[in-house]
């Protein structure tokens, strides 16, 4: 899983140290820093493919982290920062798919699944109340029945 992800990173950028971001990158205002962090967790690190920019130490992720912080320090709202990045990197950069006509099924999954499940339960309970009559015997079974009635019993072979 993640191991390989890191592998890929290392393939792309051999010898780059697993750097941590520098404390100097953080915003002085803890509330703003907290906002930046929450926002950064919703932005995909494009190179690493399955990490947010907050979790990645690729150079680009760090650049984007700084960019997010700069914008927030400049007074941009979360939505503005997101749309700024969206305009450059497209839908792919958003880890939370935006509500849109083509993500409708995705976001409706919990509701659809619940409705479907309740429907299924309702259907099967209706059936349980009215037990179905046993299927009519086939010709083969009829013959076997006649035989059974003739012999009247048997022993195990």
């Amino acid at each position: 899983m993640r191991r390989a992800l890191i592998l890929l990173l290392l393939l792309l950028a051999p010898l780059s140290a697993l750097a941590l971001s520098s404390p100097a990158d953080m915003l002085p205002d803890p509330a703003q820093e907290e906002r930046a962090r929450a926002l950064g967790r919703e932005i995909r690190c494009m190179v690493c493919q399955n990490q947010s920019i907050e979790d990645s130490e690729v150079g680009l992720a760090r650049d984007l982290r700084l960019l997010v912080r700069e914008r927030i320090a400049a007074g941009a709202s979360d939505a503005e920062v997101k749309s700024f990045l969206h305009a450059r990197y497209g839908d792919f950069v958003l880890l939370r798919p935006p509500f849109a006509w083509n993500t409708l099924i995705l976001w409706a999954t919990p509701v659809l699944a619940l409705l479907g499940g309740f429907g299924l339960i309702w259907l099967s309970r209706r059936k349980a109340v009215q037990p179905t009559p046993p299927a009519p015997l086939t010709a083969e079974e009829q013959r076997r029945l006649a035989e059974l009635e003739r012999v009247g019993g048997g022993t195990q072979a």
Partner: peptide, 21 residues
């Protein structure tokens, strides 16, 4: 395949969609 769009479905989606369940 359907819309020809590249989207990401990440932790924010899974967290918010599974929490109510």
């Amino acid at each position: 395949a359907l819309f020809g769009t590249k989207v990401s479905v990440g932790p924010p989606f899974f967290n918010s969609a599974s929490f109510p369940l």
